[in-house]
Simulated assay, not measured.
Amino acid sequence: MRYREFWDLVDDVFGRAYGRSLASDQVLDALGGRTAAQAIDDGLEPRLVWHALCDAMQVPDQRRWGRDPHRQAPPAR
Protein backbone atom coordinates (compact mmCIF):
# COMPACT_ATOMS: atom_id res chain seq x y z
CA MET A 1 0.00 0.00 0.00
CA ARG A 2 1.26 3.47 -0.84
CA TYR A 3 0.82 6.60 1.24
CA ARG A 4 -1.64 8.00 -1.31
CA GLU A 5 -3.71 4.82 -1.09
CA PHE A 6 -3.75 5.08 2.70
CA TRP A 7 -5.18 8.61 2.57
CA ASP A 8 -7.63 7.66 -0.19
CA LEU A 9 -8.94 4.86 2.04
CA VAL A 10 -9.16 7.17 5.05
CA ASP A 11 -11.32 9.53 2.97
CA ASP A 12 -13.41 6.74 1.46
CA VAL A 13 -14.09 4.70 4.59
CA PHE A 14 -14.44 7.49 7.17
CA GLY A 15 -15.26 10.55 5.05
CA ARG A 16 -12.69 13.24 4.32
CA ALA A 17 -13.31 15.58 7.27
CA TYR A 18 -13.87 12.92 9.94
CA GLY A 19 -11.16 10.64 8.56
CA ARG A 20 -8.49 13.35 8.58
CA SER A 21 -9.50 14.36 12.10
CA LEU A 22 -9.46 10.74 13.22
CA ALA A 23 -6.02 10.13 11.72
CA SER A 24 -4.66 13.23 13.44
CA ASP A 25 -6.34 12.88 16.85
CA GLN A 26 -6.96 9.20 17.66
CA VAL A 27 -4.00 7.81 19.62
CA LEU A 28 -3.50 4.13 18.84
CA ASP A 29 -1.82 1.73 21.26
CA ALA A 30 -0.96 -0.59 18.37
CA LEU A 31 1.17 2.22 16.93
CA GLY A 32 3.10 2.84 20.12
CA GLY A 33 0.83 5.60 21.39
CA ARG A 34 0.96 7.55 18.14
CA THR A 35 -1.78 8.76 15.89
CA ALA A 36 -2.09 7.33 12.40
CA ALA A 37 -0.78 10.60 10.96
CA GLN A 38 2.24 10.54 13.28
CA ALA A 39 2.95 6.92 12.39
CA ILE A 40 2.80 7.74 8.68
CA ASP A 41 5.09 10.73 9.22
CA ASP A 42 7.48 8.48 11.15
CA GLY A 43 7.73 6.17 8.14
CA LEU A 44 5.67 3.20 9.31
CA GLU A 45 4.30 0.98 6.58
CA PRO A 46 0.93 2.50 5.54
CA ARG A 47 -0.68 -0.97 5.42
CA LEU A 48 0.16 -1.56 9.10
CA VAL A 49 -1.11 1.88 10.06
CA TRP A 50 -4.32 1.29 8.12
CA HIS A 51 -5.00 -2.02 9.85
CA ALA A 52 -4.26 -0.50 13.27
CA LEU A 53 -6.69 2.34 12.59
CA CYS A 54 -9.39 -0.02 11.30
CA ASP A 55 -8.91 -2.39 14.24
CA ALA A 56 -9.20 0.47 16.73
CA MET A 57 -12.34 1.78 15.06
CA GLN A 58 -13.79 -1.73 14.66
CA VAL A 59 -14.17 -1.40 10.90
CA PRO A 60 -15.41 -4.74 9.53
CA ASP A 61 -13.20 -6.44 6.92
CA GLN A 62 -15.75 -5.93 4.14
CA ARG A 63 -15.67 -2.13 4.67
CA ARG A 64 -11.90 -1.72 5.02
CA TRP A 65 -11.26 -1.36 1.31
CA GLY A 66 -13.69 1.40 0.49
CA ARG A 67 -16.25 1.44 -2.23
CA ASP A 68 -14.09 0.15 -5.08
CA PRO A 69 -15.06 -3.51 -5.57
CA HIS A 70 -11.87 -4.10 -7.59
CA ARG A 71 -9.46 -2.87 -4.94
CA GLN A 72 -7.17 -5.62 -3.75
CA ALA A 73 -6.99 -5.95 0.00
CA PRO A 74 -3.38 -6.34 1.12
CA PRO A 75 -2.73 -8.93 3.80
CA ALA A 76 -3.20 -7.68 7.35
CA ARG A 77 0.22 -8.73 8.58
Rank of each mutant, 00 (worst) to 15 (best):
D8Q: 13
L28W: 11
D41P: 03
Q62W: 09
H70P: 00
P60M: 08
L31N: 09
R34D: 02
A36V: 08
L44W: 07
Q38Y: 05
F14I: 03
E45R: 14
D41A: 15
D29N: 10
V27L: 13
L9G: 02
R16S: 06
R20P: 00
P69C: 05
P46L: 12
Y3S: 14
V49Y: 06
R64W: 01
I40S: 04
D41C: 07
W65D: 13
A23Q: 01
D55V: 12
E45T: 13
V10T: 06
D12Q: 03
L44T: 09
A52R: 04
D55A: 12
Y3F: 11
A17E: 15
L28T: 10
G15P: 05
Y18A: 10
A30Y: 00
A17M: 05
R34Q: 15
C54E: 12
L48R: 12
R16G: 03
D8T: 12
L9K: 01
Q26T: 11
Q62V: 14
A56L: 05
Y18S: 05
L22D: 01
D61W: 06
Q72R: 06
A39Y: 02
R2Q: 07
L31I: 04
R67K: 10
M57V: 05
R16L: 08
A56T: 11
L31P: 04
R20I: 01
G15Y: 05
A39K: 06
Q58D: 14
R2I: 05
R34Y: 00
S21E: 13
W50T: 02
P69D: 06
W65R: 11
L22A: 13
W50N: 01
Q26D: 07
R63M: 14
R4T: 14
R77V: 07
G32T: 01
D61Q: 15
R63P: 00
L9C: 01
Q62C: 06
V27D: 10
A76E: 15
T35D: 10
D55G: 08
G43L: 04
F6A: 01
M57Q: 15
V27N: 08
A30F: 02
R20A: 00
R20M: 07
M1W: 04
D29I: 08
E45M: 10
A56S: 14
G66R: 01
C54N: 10
G15Q: 02
S24I: 00
Y3E: 15
R47V: 13
